[in-house]
Design a protein around this nucleic acid. Structure first.
Lengths: 135, 135
DNA sequence: GAGATTGTGTAATGGTATAACGTGTGCGAT
DNA sequence: ATCGCACACGTTATACCATTACACAATCTC
């Protein structure tokens, strides 16, 4: 790493993993990412997981808990990154990323009511996307 | 099974798993449940997973996606079971189960706006519970 | 330039979940 | 009554997800 605050400057492995996720049009598991990057020199799961940890920390990637998979953030740099919600189509696997202020307020409100210090929220809606439910 | 519609009548394995979860005061992983039920005759993960699938289907148990673990529902029989939210303390592991109408409305509203057919929602808030944040 | 920090590479392991068999039992329809 | 179906059960093997532990290199700090 050359810089202190230039978190945009990714290391080699981070850039590779970010590239794989950006190229994909849906979520990828860590092992799928690994498979796609074997030709680029990645050999072990840990190399992928370490890169993913950092990318999530940077706000460039989201982890989808209900899929054990990862997606590139659709609007990186956005605030409210920690309150992002997802709609995941069980039919086609597409993922829609949502940043909703009212939802975020309700979640923080619920936490406050319970004197709960909220660090991170996971909101994942499963069902059928518009395209698949029309078909 | 003796009855058709008596979904309250659990099979042997289902009752064992339900008992283990009820006895615990927090979430348990499937493998932890298995360990606790070895003396009762359970030998393989699949026996536990099959029982868990049914218990979740019956609305007696919730799966916590961000923990890969399961908890007994605190208010079984409640409606809105599919919109339950959870606050999970990263310090002590305690889980608070929340049924909030406003939250449920917001989630269904978001889904409708996107023409998304909502089947199930996962809402898990991570942070520090009141007791742990006070300490 | 010694020490702290961070990224990297590799091997081994641990934890989570399902596939693919086959068996047994209760129950309704013929 | 018995055949067929649906469903729970049992076992083995395997697939999939994630981390621990150790060693090395580059960089930043003082």
């Amino acid at each position: 790493m050359q810089h202190h605050h230039a978190s945009e400057a990714l290391t080699k492995n981070q850039a590779l993993v970010m590239g794989a996720l950006s190229d994909a049009d849906g979520p990828l598991s860590a092992y799928t990412i690994l498979d796609r990057l074997r030709d680029d020199g990645l050999r072990a799961p840990l190399q992928v997981y370490r890169a993913l940890d950092k990318l999530v920390e940077f706000g460039l990637v989201h982890r989808l808990e209900s899929l054990n998979a990862f997606v590139a953030c659709r609007h990186p740099g956005c605030d409210g990154h920690q309150f992002t919600a997802f709609m995941i189509c069980d039919e086609c696997g597409s993922v829609i990323e949502i940043a909703d202020t009212a939802l975020a307020r309700r979640l923080t409100g619920l936490a406050q009511d319970a004197s709960f210090i909220l660090e991170k929220s996971t909101v994942e809606l499963r069902g059928l996307c518009a395209a698949c439910s029309a078909a």
